[in-house]
Simulated assay, not measured.
Amino acid sequence: MEEHGFLPWQAEAWQRLQAQRRDDRLPHALLITGAAGIGKGRFAHALAASLLCSRPQEDGTPCGACQGCHWFRAGSHPDYGRLEPEEPGKAIRVDAVRAFVDGEGLTSQAGGYKLLVIEPAEAMNQAAANSLLKTLEEPVPWTLMLLISSDPGRLPATIRSRCQRLHFDVPAPDLARDWLRRQGVNGDPDLLLALAAGAPLKARELADPEILAERSKLLDEFAAILAQREDPVALAARWSRLPLERLLEWYSGWLIDSLRLKADPAVRDLINPDQRKRLQAIGERVESDQLYRLLDEAYRVIRSLGTPLNPQLTLEDLLLTLAASIDRQRTRQ
Score class of each variant (00 low, 15 high):
W71K: 00
D79T: 05
A19C: 02
L318I: 13
R22E: 12
Q109R: 14
C53T: 02
L193S: 02
V267L: 07
G60F: 00
S304G: 08
A266V: 04
S252K: 11
L166R: 08
L247D: 06
R22K: 13
T61P: 00
Q275K: 14
S216W: 05
L201V: 08
R285I: 00
G198V: 10
Q312H: 07
E3H: 13
L318T: 10
L146N: 02
Q228C: 03
A44R: 00
V97N: 04
E284G: 15
A223T: 12
E137C: 11
W179H: 09
L195I: 07
Q10S: 08
A224S: 13
V185A: 12
L320N: 10
V286Q: 00
L212T: 09
E249S: 12
L193Q: 01
P200C: 05
A35E: 15
P56G: 01
R215Q: 14
T158G: 09
E58M: 00
L309G: 13
V140H: 15
P173H: 07
L51G: 01
L247G: 07
Q15D: 12
D59Q: 05
L31F: 10
L7P: 00
L31S: 09
R25Y: 09
S288Q: 13
P171Y: 03
C69Q: 00
R98F: 09
A223V: 14
P27S: 13
A298T: 11
L291V: 06
L175Q: 15
W71S: 00
L212H: 09
P156E: 09
A323G: 09
D188Q: 10
L30W: 05
L248M: 13
L7D: 01
L315Q: 09
L219S: 03
L193Y: 02
E2G: 05
E245R: 14
S325C: 13
R22Q: 14
A127R: 06
L144N: 02
N272V: 06
S304Y: 13
D59P: 03
V170M: 00
A236N: 09
L30N: 04
E284H: 05
R25W: 09
E287T: 08
R204P: 04
A36R: 14
A237H: 11
G75K: 04
R16A: 15
L244E: 10
S258V: 01
I118R: 01
L206F: 14
A227H: 11
S50Y: 01
G68A: 08
L259E: 04
A213I: 12
Q329N: 04
D188N: 15
R16W: 11
D24Q: 13
D190A: 15
A11S: 15
